[in-house]
Amino acid sequence: MLRLLAVDDEVPALEELAYLLRQDSRVEQVSTASNGVSALQDMVQMIGAGERLDGVFLDIRMPGLDGLDLARLVGGFPSPPKLVFVTAHEDSAVTAFELEAVDYLLKPVRAERLAEAVRRLEVASAPVADQGVDDVIPVELGGRTRFVPQQAVWYAEAKGDYVRLHTVDGSYLVRMSLAALERRWVGAGFIRVHRSTLVSARHVSELRFEGGRVLLTVGTETLPVSRRHTRQVREQLVRQFRAAMP
């Protein structure tokens, strides 16, 4: 369950955002602040009292301490909360992702889009697995159990209550939700590119635009990226590429 802080100098927008967040079953608590200075004071007080703060939904253009400056200050915390920017302006998106924002929402915020931001924040806030150990998924095959290593998986595809794991050797059906697999492999380089598809960044060899769509080459497969996930996918692939550079 997530503990969140919502920050906006426009009271109606702040109240609406807090209301929508409180309707989400994944959210335990929502605190609010009407300006950057109050938000910073609240965060310092929470952390000083040992309270958990998982994420901050943050307006950008505020008088005094604006959202980007506040985000830079928050980045200096020992264990900074994850950030989601909520703004009426598109021109700060690049800066927001340079500050490692989990998501960037445009006002007016739609409930469906906010729910997606909460999902991304939930995944980003989950404990990171030990990447030195390659996780394996057991698959039942006609009385035999095969262990499919995480590193062999090109992508995972939701199939109702199951997930189909695609590898160079074939595909395997396992009883598990895609959301559960995403939480299990968070931090291991897997990216949600569609509501039904989770891709391993290590196996992505190409990103291209074709016919108004974004396509990824993953292993020997070509997969579409949904419009909703396009910006997040591009940013995450760039970050991982830079991190891998010597």
Rank of each mutant, 00 (worst) to 15 (best):
M1T: 12
R3T: 15
D9T: 10
E15Y: 03
E16S: 14
L17W: 01
Y19T: 11
L20G: 02
Q23I: 06
S25W: 06
V27C: 04
E28D: 09
Q29W: 10
T32R: 12
S34Q: 12
A39S: 06
Q41M: 10
Q45K: 12
Q45A: 14
I47E: 11
I47F: 09
A49Q: 13
A49E: 12
A49D: 14
R52P: 00
R52N: 07
G55Y: 04
G55L: 07
V56I: 14
F57E: 07
D59L: 08
I60H: 00
G64R: 12
G64Y: 10
G64H: 13
G67H: 04
D69Q: 15
D69N: 15
L70G: 05
A71Y: 00
L73P: 01
G76V: 00
F77T: 05
K82H: 14
L83H: 00
V84H: 01
T87P: 02
A88N: 05
H89M: 10
D91K: 11
D91F: 09
A93T: 06
A93E: 08
T95Y: 00
E98Q: 12
E100M: 06
Y104K: 05
L105P: 03
L106I: 15
L106D: 09
K107W: 03
R113S: 12
L114W: 05
A115D: 14
E116Y: 08
V118D: 05
R119F: 13
R120S: 10
L121M: 13
S125N: 04
A129S: 15
Q131N: 13
V136G: 04
I137Y: 02
P138H: 02
G142C: 08
F147L: 15
W154G: 11
A156C: 15
E157A: 10
A158G: 09
A158V: 07
G160R: 01
D161N: 13
R164N: 10
H166N: 09
D169S: 14
G170H: 11
G170E: 09
G170V: 10
S171F: 10
Y172H: 14
Y172P: 02
M176F: 14
S177R: 13
A180P: 02
E182N: 04
E182R: 00
E182C: 08
R184M: 08
V186M: 10
V193D: 02
H194A: 10
R195T: 07
T197F: 02
A201K: 00
V204A: 03
E206I: 02
E206P: 00
L207F: 11
G211I: 01
R213S: 14
V214R: 08
V218E: 03
T220Y: 06
T220F: 05
S226Y: 03
T230N: 07
R231K: 15
Q232W: 06
V233E: 00
Q236C: 03
Q240F: 06
F241S: 14
F241M: 13
F241L: 14
R242E: 07
P246W: 01
